[in-house]
Nucleic acid binder design. Structure first.
Lengths: 334, 334
DNA sequence: CTGAAAGCGCTAACAT
DNA sequence: ATGTTAGCGCTTTCAG
């Protein structure tokens, strides 16, 4: 570990002169600067970021908090976030809460003790009340991929217009001629999607009875189980809206396991449009979320706070759009 | 930001007494300890991990370096690593290199400047020569999911017995009666899998002509393209071994797009057994990698180094095993 | 243009 | 049992 002091000794200069030469900030004569730089090079000097952070109260670190990385929706976003942060010399501390609020709190506390510069909190991975508290303490943070009605006003947030997404899904299925619909969703993180969906049904005077609404947790397996329940109804749905692609994959699995066909017997539409969805059988029709845009806006909002900007806009809503593939079609004529 | 000094002032004690009370290390009378603890509580004291790190030269941070998180093989491992690390109060700094060695070097340098305590470097994400250099500088690091012949002796490493995995794949296909085989693999990170595969073919006096060996990069899309090339041969293979599940998914996609069936026309076997593979159509036959074990051994080897243990065993090989699902069957009788 | 010194928050010897 | 002090590596006034 070679410090500026070491190279000061070696060159016979004072610590501060070395610091100036290295940082390029102070005024140093060209000759001494050269000598110092060369010496630093030779001795293998590496600036101690920790000491610097300690002084500046800036760690060049952001925290990324999410439910679980095993849902393939997240990696696509994380990738973009990490890359963008890295362009600003920021590194990403990553942690998953598995929807365990207690754990989330612990993680946050640890991050705060480390003086992480900013926090990106994704998809309902923490107790919103806690988040609100942290925000009021002045921590730079932004919510990403939450429902816009989940968080109190004022907390910067970039989300997808999930209500709209639900509407798009409903329109698509209705346009195809489906009446008997089923929904698989998570409570309470995905109610907006459901509400958007319902609003369209209602306008079309179609009801969605309780047994056609299956609550799940955000795993493939629970999508599978939820679909099984839908199929077990006496009058099974001709189309299923799963509020995430990950759930939709589980649902398709269940439908096929039940000896039915997708989309001929049952149409399935997902939401997220994860990379995988295009490559499955059948390729999944999905309401796409512009993930790159989501990541960019999030990082941007975060850095604006980190940079001390006031009046960072509180809310960005990103428009989803329909991607039609082959998991949806007209209902079988019965 | 309240410091021990603040609470020293508030209680009229000296800094060190406060420190002692808080850490529980020194000897402090019960009454003052109580007073201090309470005061700390009230003032919202939070220990400054950065200052502590600065003093101790320990940051409670490990780095996780990998090619790309969008390959779903990694999230499953990352999850386990993060969780295990978290149990020891360690946090995980995550970065992906996209197989860009230059970028990998930059990232490493940054991490080193931060005094990251240890490094987990996954799946050929960095130049092994660089890694070797870092290791010789004394950085605690462990390679995870590399081929065991890729790294020089001495660098701690936990890997899967990929040669064996290749053999298992070959045996499985041969046992089913396939002779005309195709392979999709990455160069140079996956040559061992190929060699294991070939060793079995050779023993069975089956040759694998050059056009039946498709080199790809580790993406779904390149698996797709590679499979297309295999199918374009005049005498197409009756079975394909893809050296990762992610490639296998792309391959299946290509086979189906070509109007052929899996497994009736073409069997496909993957390697990794990612969670997804069980839920696809057809469910993928795969050589499974015990991911939890991989993660645990890796973390264990890393912490033993961090803890200063000498003679950390250099190499752990984990045995893969076959999981038969429905993407493989007997060749069509022609 | 260069040097001396204080301080970021905490720890650990060492005095008292 | 409590207080004093030096120091981790770096940055930044402020003097020389």
């Amino acid at each position: 570990m070679v410090t500026i002091y070491d190279i000061a000794k070696a060159t016979g200069m004072a610590k501060s002169t070395v610091a100036n030469a290295l940082s390029g900030k102070g005024v140093v004569s060209e000759t001494t600067r050269q000598r110092i730089l060369q010496c630093a090079q030779e001795m293998g000097y590496r600036p101690n970021v920790l000491a610097r952070s300690f002084y500046h109260h800036k760690t060049l670190t952001i925290a990324l908090i999410l439910p679980t990385i095993t849902n393939p929706f997240y990696p696509e976003i994380i990738e973009a976030i990490e890359r963008t942060a890295s362009e600003r010399d920021y590194q990403t501390l990553f942690c998953s809460t598995h929807m365990n609020f207690e754990l989330g709190r612990e993680q946050m506390e640890r991050m705060m003790s480390r003086w992480v510069d900013g926090y990106i909190i994704m998809g309902s991975s923490m107790d919103i009340a806690d988040v609100h508290g942290y925000f009021q303490q002045g921590l730079p943070l932004v919510l990403c991929d939450w429902q816009e009605n989940e968080a109190p006003e004022g907390i910067p947030q970039v989300s997808v217009d999930f209500y709209r997404a639900g509407q798009i899904a409903a329109h698509h299925l209705l346009d195809l001629g489906h009446h008997r619909l089923g929904v698989i969703f998570d409570e309470p993180q995905q109610t907006l999607r459901l509400e958007g969906f319902l609003s369209v049904l209602q306008a079309a005077q179609i009801t969605l009875p309780g047994e056609m609404r299956q609550v799940s947790s955000s795993t493939l397996e629970s999508g599978y189980l939820a679909a099984q329940h839908l199929l077990a109804q006496t009058e099974r749905p001709s189309a299923i809206f799963a509020t995430t692609d990950w759930l939709a994959l589980g649902a398709i699995d269940a439908v096929l396991d039940a000896g039915l066909r997708v989309p001929e017997d049952i149409s399935v539409v997902g939401l997220d449009d994860i990379m995988l969805s295009a490559h499955l059988r059948p390729p999944l029709t999905s309401i796409a979320v512009p993930k790159l845009q989501l990541a960019r806006e999030t990082i941007s909002l975060l850095f604006r706070q980190i940079d001390g900007e006031k009046d960072v806009p509180a809310r960005k809503l990103i428009a989803p759009y329909l991607v039609v593939r082959q998991s949806t079609t007209f209902p079988a004529s019965t």
